[in-house]
Design a protein around this nucleic acid. Structure first.
Lengths: 220, 220
DNA sequence: GAGGTTAGTGTCAGCTGCTGACAGTTGACA
DNA sequence: TGTCAACTGTCAGCAGCTGACACTAACCTC
């Protein structure tokens, strides 16, 4: 992420980008995404509007850029899982690992707490949620390719990797949604939810719910 | 959908809305969504731009409105499934039933062929795909509520309905994506894909792929 | 069937997101 | 030190979208 060319120019560039990002997220999370104009952001950083659009393709991208970082980290984690793990094992461990290391990866750019508030903002802002879901769909395909490769399968001839990953990421997204509706914005909260929902994916798909116990979960 | 107040006023209203919709979809599918301006649409129908925005909240809504109709039909079908069917049985039958009856439901508004082209347009246009995914997420929650009600469960205390539905709709979305990348735009094609992928959801989640046969499916 | 009411439309003015073009400035590097 | 390239600012302009208000045509009542 951070260019190491270490010129004074690169430094300043990084600074303005960070400043823009921080100002944007701060404004978004305090007064709302739609209510915040690009002019307000650039005024806060004292650059021109044109500069904003040189760093971010659009307003959305600013709101989602940290999220992208987190997704990249998840992918990286998945790539490093040992191949003898089963697909779901590898996925589970990657998800949890990326939640655990979220702090170090993000803190360099913005406070984790701001990131969590932004996450919730995304879930509650239709335009941002839409864009986020589209990114997730792209991520899904990459994950499917990875999983298929692990198992020595071809995504185009064997539908199972894509199906499994689609089901899995469906549950992950749902977890994020439920978390966003709740009160507890901490990393621990979403981590816990993740464990709960991913852990129950087996029983949920087994059917026959009426005769088996309902695993407890606190309401939204 | 159609107001039955049968005044001359309502009639004209319906006409302009249909004309706007048809013109919009025709232009979108022939020259692209982003490349089509609202002015072009309103020029084709000979109304003012302002009128367009009285019928559709935004450009997106015009592109997605028929899709919404299809989703409503799926929901209606699901509501009418007999309660003794298992969740997945009810879901499967509803999906297939709504594909079968797509013709009659849509044809009143636009040609089915145009609808299919629009569907593919949505899958291949980032902005539309994003909005579509957001709608799907809303639909997902409704479906989860329905399924939970069928089984006499509460969505907030038993995570299984939401998990199952999330996994299921994840696979459904993936099916739409794969279809959109293919050549065959027919209803039959997507129906067949749906059967294939939904049918393999069990084996896919069972794990242990390396030792079991790969169900054949033709590539994208 | 005249007259008032109301729904639907057009016009206009204006904001916001976003882009291309061009000029100015400042760091990099010989 | 001077040249080049990168980054930024300014300006002009388009497209999406909205509020306000005036106008027209369908509706309803007497």
């Amino acid at each position: 992420m951070q260019k190491v060319r270490t010129g004074l120019r690169e430094l300043k560039k990084q600074r303005t980008r960070d400043a823009l990002l921080r100002a944007a997220l701060e404004l978004f999370t305090t007064q709302g995404y739609e209510q915040t104009t690009v002019d307000e952001i650039t005024d806060a950083v004292e650059v021109s509007q044109r500069t904003f659009f040189r760093y971010f393709a659009n307003k959305e991208e600013a709101a989602l850029s940290v999220q992208l970082l987190a997704e990249a980290q998840f992918l990286a984690a998945l790539r490093e899982r040992p191949p003898e793990e089963s697909p779901f094992e590898a996925l589970n461990r990657s998800v949890l690992a990326s939640w655990d290391s979220i702090g170090e990866a993000i803190e360099a750019v913005i406070p984790v707490e701001l990131h969590m508030r932004t996450y919730q903002l995304i879930e509650s802002t239709p335009a941002l949620l839409a864009a986020h879901l589209r990114h997730s769909a792209e991520l899904e395909e990459e994950v499917a390719q990875l999983i298929a490769a692990r198992e020595g399968l071809d995504v185009n001839t064997d539908p199972r990797p894509r199906i499994a990953v689609a089901a899995y990421t469906g549950v992950m997204r749902m977890t994020g949604r439920i978390w966003g509706q709740g009160q507890d914005l901490s990393v621990d909260a979403i981590r816990e939810l993740t464990v709960t929902y991913l852990g129950h994916i087996g029983p949920a798909l087994a059917g026959n719910w009426r005769n088996s116990p309902a695993p407890g979960v606190r309401g939204a």
